[in-house]
């Protein structure tokens, strides 16, 4: 899909098996009902088909087009515009290292380089076992926790090359990984379903990760005359335990 292919046009994409189509159609109806105009459901529906197959396939785009009365060209135009839609088979876990300026300078570049070497993959490539896709991402609105790594769009704050490598090792080994702020990781497909607008049904998922992180609270603590947690100049990634203790004081 990502290559420009000249020559014979492709045959129309195959449809989903009847059972899958029926299930997705029921979901799609719920999504469409949220909007005054059905086309507004296109972005969530692309998340939905991504939750079925792990990436946006031609079959998925055909489904969106038929459901919303659009052409596949119209759907393709949208699907290729947004970076969260994966256009080829990819890993169960999408590991994104922020390399926008602030995170890059604070160590994101080093983390990304070390992860590439550690995993033996380049940008937007997947480990052979299909577990981890690595990419560099743009600013994810957590600059006060730099350098930041996102996995399936959950926050891993104050990372170091060591903490990031240990985290991907856990992912590769199939161990449960818990982000700094947010719920224990689910798979990329499950994440995509939440993005389609279906609330996370897992017990405790909303509460997981607790309240605001330590950096979010620093101004509040100072305003109350409390000492903020000791200014952290050492790697906050490896001192996560300490930060938790301080956060709970």
């Amino acid at each position: 899909m990502t290559d420009v292919s000249l020559g014979m046009p492709q045959l129309p994409a195959p449809d989903y098996p009847a059972e899958v189509r029926e299930r997705l159609a029921a979901d799609a109806a719920q999504v469409i009902a949220r909007y005054p105009d059905s086309r507004s459901a296109l972005l969530p529906l692309l998340h939905l088909v991504q939750s079925e197959e792990g990436h946006v396939t031609r079959t998925g785009m055909r489904f969106c087009a038929e459901t919303l009365g659009l052409t596949t060209a119209e759907v393709t135009a949208v699907a290729t515009f947004y970076t969260m839609y994966r256009r080829k088979p990819s890993g169960e876990y999408q590991v994104g290292v922020c390399t926008n300026t602030l995170c890059a300078v604070m160590g994101g570049d080093a983390i990304f380089d070390e992860l590439k070497e550690h995993l033996g993959v380049g940008n937007n490539e997947t480990t052979p076992d299909g577990k981890v896709t690595l990419e560099h991402i743009e600013c994810n609105a957590a600059c006060d926790y730099a350098p930041v790594v996102m996995v399936n769009w959950e926050f891993f704050d104050n990372q170091t090359p060591e903490s990031a490598k240990a985290m991907v090792d856990d992912l590769l080994a199939g161990r449960q990984v818990v982000p700094t702020r947010g719920a224990p990781l689910c798979t990329y497909k499950e994440t995509a379903r939440i993005l389609a607008g279906f609330p996370d049904e897992r017990e405790g998922a909303v509460e997981a990760g607790g309240g605001a992180g330590p950096a979010s609270l620093i101004g509040l603590r100072i305003a109350r005359g409390e000492s903020p947690h000791t200014p952290i100049v050492h790697p906050r990634g490896e001192a996560r335990g300490d930060a938790d203790t301080e956060g709970g004081e």
Partner: peptide
């Protein structure tokens, strides 16, 4: 929102 090479990055209202 204070960030970067500061001792106390975070939110200050």
């Amino acid at each position: 929102s204070l960030s970067g090479h500061v001792a106390g990055p975070g939110q200050y209202e």
